[in-house]
Nucleic acid binder design. Structure first.
Length: 447
RNA sequence: CGGAGCGUGGCGCAGUCUGGUAGCGCACUUGACUGGGGGUCAAGGGGUCGCUGGUUCGAGUCCAGUCGCUCCGACCA
């Protein structure tokens, strides 16, 4: 993409309403624009990151055997009356009426709808187990939206729902999602620790929150440091095999959120492993059994012909929130430092003397070559001072900055800056495409 | 919802107490000089001061109402 054709409204000054780094940087780097309290428009650069996060979440869901679908954002009140949650959900639910005065709502979650969809199409235990998911915008009328996309009212969430014949099978589904989440967050470059969690209004008896440790996190958390260093399951993990050992391994050490914290148990953890910190909840998984299947009559015929309510679980990932969490983990005072897998572009190509025949020709050539090798390039072909261009590139934080100017043309060298380490090196212009595209490919290859 | 604030060119703010020609920095436009980490000089353009009503000869400023946003607390991906 040529910057001259892009929409990248960067801000030099810090917007006064932004309290935390991720919010500040998303506004300054022209990734989002606030349209109301807790409601954001996703500008081109931010939207690319959002799509990349979404795609990684999708790939790991698919790998685990979940089937993607898409449910609407608008739901009928009657559906929620079946589960009893229409009244129970309270003011956090955005309620609306249509022209015929039918009561409707902008979905805060989809347990009711997926249960309705499931019961319409499944009759027998032989059709189980199943895991369905979608990635869709949700609306929760938060009392106090804050921290930008970390606590918006409208947010993008991946929610999966599992259906099983009995609890033993349901636990296997739970383990699948548990392992899928470990992989998802690891691929996104964040250390998310599964912690024993309160089940909240959804109910149930088995639940974990996946928490990214961050000073700006909203919840207090307590865990064993050794969890941070545990190896993530590789992509050859067999989701049809026994995943319990992995689950057991990750739940063997102490990790709990504030609500579930047991001080005496935590105190028994070796002092040097104790971590008492703050965290950002990026995922939450629940097993809740018959909570919805029973009242909503989502039943299947068992092997003996009897009607059995299915055992359900639900599994959420905050896709838009993750973008904030990733920036919290990877930034410095000058801007973002995107990990390659979620970077909006892999390389920023800076033409230091746009309009100069030689510079333009050299940059155009590199731009074409890198692009043809599948490298995503944001090509700064605009005018302006070098300092201004560098500062802008640092702010948006692409993993590599490739700088071409008259001096480099003369010496045949390009300056390459690695934004992760902020180290600079020079590479021969005629080799730069090959070297950079190789590095990008390596960084994208995740086991 | 309780408490505290804020709405003035695109962004950040001053001006409001004490009513009297709407200002500053950045950004933007044009030209020149420049050019390897947010340049220099010169000349410009852009604002019904959130909205409605009131007081007044006169309101950004005072009064009332209203809308929006932010921060502190209880809820949550």
């Amino acid at each position: 993409m040529r910057l001259s054709r892009y929409y990248l409204p960067v801000l030099k000054e810090t917007p006064s309403e932004a309290q935390i780094a991720s919010h500040r940087l998303m506004l300054r780097a022209g990734m989002i624009r606030q349209e109301g309290a807790g409601i954001y428009a996703w500008l081109p650069l931010g939207f690319r990151v959002l799509k990349k996060i979404e795609q990684i979440v999708r790939e790991e869901q698919d790998r685990a055997g979940a089937a993607e679908m898409l449910m609407p954002t608008i739901q009928q009140a009657d559906l929620w009356r079946e589960s009893g949650r229409y009244d129970a959900y309270g003011k956090e639910m955005l309620r609306i009426t249509d022209r015929a005065d039918r009561e409707m709502l902008f979905g805060p979650t989809n347990e009711e709808m997926i249960t309705e969809i499931f019961r319409a199409g499944v009759r027998s235990y032989k059709d189980l187990p199943k895991i369905l998911y979608h990635i869709q915008w949700k609306f929760r009328d938060e009392i106090r939206p804050r921290f930008g996309v970390m606590r918006g009212r409208e947010f993008l969430m991946k929610d999966s729902y599992s259906f099983d014949i009995d609890e033993e099978s349901a636990r296997k589904s739970y383990y699948k999602m548990f392992v899928a989440y470990l992989r998802t967050f690891a691929r996104l470059g964040v250390k998310a620790i599964p912690m024993r969690a309160d089940t909240g209004p959804i109910g149930g008896d088995l639940s974990h929150e996946f928490i990214v440790l961050a000073e700006t996190g909203e919840s207090a958390v307590f865990c064993d440091k050794r969890l941070v260093e545990m190896d993530t399951p590789k992509k050859d993990v067999d989701f049809d095999g026994d995943l319990k050992p992995i689950f057991d391994q990750f739940t063997s050490l102490y990790a709990a959120t504030d609500e579930m914290h047991d001080k005496s148990e935590f105190d028994s953890v070796d002092q040097k492993h104790q971590v008492s910190a703050r965290g950002i909840e990026v995922g939450h998984i629940f097993f809740f059994g018959e909570k919805y299947s029973k009242p909503m009559k989502a039943v299947v015929a068992g092997s003996d012909g009897s009607e059995i309510p299915v055992q359900m679980g639900s599994y959420g990932v905050g896709v838009s929130r993750l973008m904030g969490a990733i920036i919290e983990a990877y930034h410095d005072e000058n801007g973002c430092k995107w990990p390659m897998p979620v970077a909006p572009y892999h390389v920023g190509l800076v033409n230091l003397r746009s309009g100069d025949e030689d510079c333009d020709a050299a940059c155009d050539k590199i731009y074409k070559e890198l692009t043809s090798k599948g490298v995503e390039v944001l090509y700064d072909d605009t005018g302006g001072r070098p300092g201004e261009k560098f500062a802008r590139m640092d702010l948006i934080g692409l993993p590599y900055q490739l700088v071409i100017g008259p001096r480099g043309i003369k010496s045949g060298e390009a300056e390459v800056k690695n934004r992760t380490t902020d180290e600079r090196e020079t590479i021969a212009i005629d080799k730069v495409t090959e070297i950079i595209s190789g590095r990008v490919a390596d960084a994208l290859d995740y086991a």
